[in-house]
């Protein structure tokens, strides 16, 4: 292995042979290594082995790159999902809240696996489940219809131990068609159902929140049924339907605007937050 010609300026070693096989040498060095290999059968054999191994690896793995790429690895889908997550300015607001230690905001993403049980993510799932059972029921979707609104409200208010009103979505094209109390793992919830002229149904589900009592609006979906969920001062809301998120979002905003606690029940959330900020300083 020491048959190295005396006019070779830099001795050729194993690393050079690897680099030769990997095409990692500049032209001058490559020439030197080539000359060396030509004169040295053992080096030639080593290079042949290296290059054979390299070819074997490439051929063994090459077919993987020819397989169709699964849908879940679609880059454009991933980019779109990311954009939807980023669109909402409330994420910024939530970050400020978190950094000030205000509110029990458990997580910004519904996919957050550390979200507490019974939090906003659970509420979203319960709302979708209720929608799937009742909104698709053509015989008996509601316990009480729109004519029994007062009775319904007193029923759900007593179950939630909190006065509740029915959000009005008529201006957006959805007529109130009644509601019922539904059971969740985290206590009773009220479900109000709405229907558009074309028969499309929406549900608004609300229940008391033991965790994540004040949470900005989050989008949620299980692929077929989805919507938005949020919580204000211990009461959680979710609007669900089968429409596209862009179509449901303004409706969720409208519901949130209507159910915002009125000044008579206390200062509005922003000034309360401001007061708490002032206390922290």
């Amino acid at each position: 292995m020491s048959t190295m010609s005396s006019n070779t300026p830099v001795p050729i070693d194993e690393a050079d042979l690897h680099a030769y096989v990997d095409n990692a040498l500049d032209a001058a060095r490559r020439k030197e290594v080539q000359d060396y290999i030509d004169r040295n059968p053992q080096a030639a054999q080593a290079v042949a082995a290296l290059s054979g191994q390299r070819q074997l690896l490439r051929s063994a793995l090459s077919s993987i790159a020819d397989e169709p790429i699964p849908q879940r690895l679609s880059l454009s889908n991933l980019i779109r999902e990311r954009r939807q997550q980023r669109r909402w300015p409330w994420q910024m607001a939530a970050a400020v809240f978190l950094s000030l230690g205000i509110g029990a905001i458990g997580g910004l993403s519904l996919r957050d696996r550390t979200a507490p049980a019974g939090g906003i993510s659970a509420l979203a799932g319960e709302a979708r489940a209720s929608y799937a059972v009742y909104a698709t029921d053509n015989l008996h979707p509601v316990e009480m219809g729109p004519q029994q609104r007062a009775e319904l409200l007193s029923w759900v208010s007593s179950k939630l131990n909190q006065p509740v009103t029915v959000p009005d979505l008529t201006p957006s094209g959805y007529r109130f068609s009644g509601g019922r109390v539904v059971a969740t793992e985290h206590g009773p919830a009220a479900m109000f159902l709405y229907e558009a002229a074309d028969g499309t149904r929406l549900a608004v589900v609300m229940r008391r929140m033991a965790h994540e009592t004040d949470t900005p609006m989050l989008q949620h979906s299980d692929g077929h049924v989805g919507g938005y969920a949020w919580a204000v001062r211990g009461l959680g809301f979710s609007l669900v339907g089968t429409g596209r998120p862009e179509a449901l979002h303004p409706l969720a905003d409208e519901v949130r605007r209507q159910v915002q606690p009125t000044p008579s029940t206390g200062a509005n959330p922003r000034s309360r937050a401001m007061q708490r900020v002032a206390l922290l300083e």
Binding site: S62, I69, L75, I79
Partner: peptide, 23 residues
């Protein structure tokens, strides 16, 4: 930004799958 991201990362996905499978 998105088009840049798409054009530069899309061609790498097949190689990433191959590398991950090898690992």
């Amino acid at each position: 930004m998105a088009s840049d991201l798409l054009s530069r990362v899309q061609p790498l996905i097949a190689a990433l799958r191959r590398y991950a499978r090898g690992m």
